[in-house]
């Protein structure tokens, strides 16, 4: 699958403002809304929050991968945000989350969803990539680090 078509500079924020889980989720959905990828902001936010209620997508090492399915999108869309000071996301290791990759895909159509999450997560397993991401100053740097 073509990650470059899904994650673009306009859906990357290197300085998230939110200090709570809900605020970060809303900020990432707003990024997608501003880029014209979604039709109904509230429906997408609800889908992502519903998924978080079942189990937090906060993983280890400061990574969170919030995601959901909603027919407010026509195809797989993604946003990436960084909050260097960290946010309590209810992560598995109890540590604050700093790198957030949000994915939303259509509910009633087939297509990669988990595959995208897995592929975008793979480089994040590398501590050096995570460190460089946190030090990145432009969205293009982030894209280069994750997509090569």
């Amino acid at each position: 699958m073509n990650l470059k078509k899904t994650l673009t500079a306009e859906t990357i924020s290197l300085n998230l403002q939110g200090t709570t889980k809900d605020a970060v989720l809303a900020e990432l959905v707003d990024l997608l809304m501003a880029s014209g990828h979604i039709r109904d902001r509230d429906a997408v936010l609800k889908a992502v929050q519903e998924r978080e209620k079942r189990m937090s997508t906060g993983m280890q090492n400061g990574i969170a991968i919030p995601h959901g399915k909603s027919d407010s999108v026509d195809c797989l869309v993604a946003a990436l945000g960084i909050k260097r000071s960290g946010v309590d996301f209810g992560a598995l290791d109890g540590q604050p989350s700093v790198i957030f990759v949000m994915t939303v895909s259509p509910d009633s159509r087939t297509g990669p969803h988990i595959q995208f999450l897995a592929e975008i997560s793979r480089p994040l397993n590398d501590p050096a990539v995570r460190a460089k991401l946190l030090a990145a100053t432009t969205p293009d740097e982030v894209l280069h680090l994750l997509l090569g």
């Binding site: 079942r54 189990m55 988990i114 999450l117 897995a118 592929e119 997560s121 793979r122 397993n125």
Partner: peptide, 16 residues
């Protein structure tokens, strides 16, 4: 090994 992440994420979602 390369695709283990996808396997784990997919199984976790289905278990949920």
């Amino acid at each position: 090994q390369r695709h283990a992440t996808m396997a784990r994420l997919l199984v976790a979602e289905e278990m949920l």
